[in-house]
Amino acid sequence: MAMYWLMQGCQAGDSLVFHYSGHGSQQRNYTGDEVDGFDETLCPLDFETQGMIVDDEINATIVRPLPAGARLHAIVDACHSGTVLDLPYLCRMDRNGNYVWEDHRPRSGVWKGTNGGEAISFSGCDDDQTSADTSALSKITSTGAMTYAFIQAIERGHGTTYGNMLNAMRSTIRNTDNGVGGGIVTSLISMLLTGGSLGGLRQEPQLTANQAFDVYKKPFFL
């Protein structure tokens, strides 16, 4: 996997960014280390011949080796991407901005944290949701709605804290309904892989981390 390259030579003081905008899906988990019973996956261009990239692999490759003093930000714009890095904590936030950190550490005791570093992920939607495309960014071609919302949050000055970022991204997506297009196409691959059915657009960006923190006090910076 190309992800191995990201971690080569990683040391204290490094700030890493992993961005993926594409197809995502789920598959049944049989080890008992998933709260919802499913592993989240990424579907790269060659997934039909090489297979999907499972969240366990992503965690083992770019999360667990992260050394003390290093920082990783993941920006994953894909269907079913809420916990795609398998990080131990998910920030469950309501529409009023109130939040609690959910503990997603596996009951099996398998370690999903880092080797002392800090790992934080913004994802396009919750694990049971799909991510849409939008033409509102370029006005010419469709891009991921979450990627668009992430850029808008920074450009409009909402990137002061992680909580402000998450609220701004969700607000942008809720207010971009008229510009959304291609969501059905984006979701189709997930439907085919999981045997699910297509429904209306439900998309709320998520925040996960290797440890809980005050999202309204911790400054956001890459």
Rank of each mutant, 00 (worst) to 15 (best):
A212C: 13
F18K: 05
T141H: 08
I154S: 05
F221R: 12
G199H: 11
R95A: 14
G182H: 06
D177V: 12
I184G: 13
R95I: 10
L72P: 06
S123H: 02
D177L: 12
E48D: 14
V35N: 08
R202M: 09
D14R: 08
E204K: 03
L192Y: 12
L45Q: 11
G113P: 06
M1T: 09
V180T: 10
E57F: 12
T49I: 14
L222N: 08
A60K: 10
G182L: 05
A74E: 01
H104S: 03
D127N: 14
A78K: 03
A12E: 14
T161P: 00
R107D: 09
F38S: 14
K139P: 01
F150M: 05
I53H: 00
D56A: 11
A12M: 11
F221M: 07
N167H: 01
H19D: 04
D33V: 06
M146C: 09
A136S: 10
I75S: 04
L90R: 11
F38L: 15
M52L: 11
S171T: 09
N178E: 15
M1V: 08
V54N: 12
M52R: 13
T49R: 15
H19I: 12
D33T: 04
G182C: 06
T114E: 05
M7I: 08
L198Y: 14
A212D: 10
S171A: 13
V76G: 03
P88F: 05
D177M: 11
R95G: 11
C91R: 04
G182D: 04
L72N: 08
Y216Q: 03
P67I: 13
M169L: 01
Y4E: 15
L201R: 13
G199M: 09
R174D: 11
R92C: 10
T31P: 02
L207F: 01
G109P: 06
C43L: 15
I154M: 05
I173D: 00
A70S: 11
D94L: 10
N167T: 07
E118R: 15
Y162A: 04
C91M: 09
H158L: 01
Y148A: 06
G159I: 00
I140R: 14
M7Y: 06
G183N: 04
R95P: 00
V84P: 04
F122H: 04
I140P: 03
M146R: 02
C125N: 03
G163W: 01
P219L: 05
C10P: 05
L188R: 12
D36W: 09
T172A: 12
R95F: 10
P44S: 07
M169Q: 03
V76L: 07
A168V: 02
T141R: 12
I189W: 04
A2H: 07
N178S: 15
Q152V: 02
Y4P: 00
T83E: 13
G182W: 01
D127R: 11
A2G: 02
V35R: 13
N115R: 11
G124K: 00
A136Q: 09
G13L: 09
G113L: 05
F221I: 05
N175I: 04
H23Y: 08
V100L: 13
E48R: 14
L66H: 04
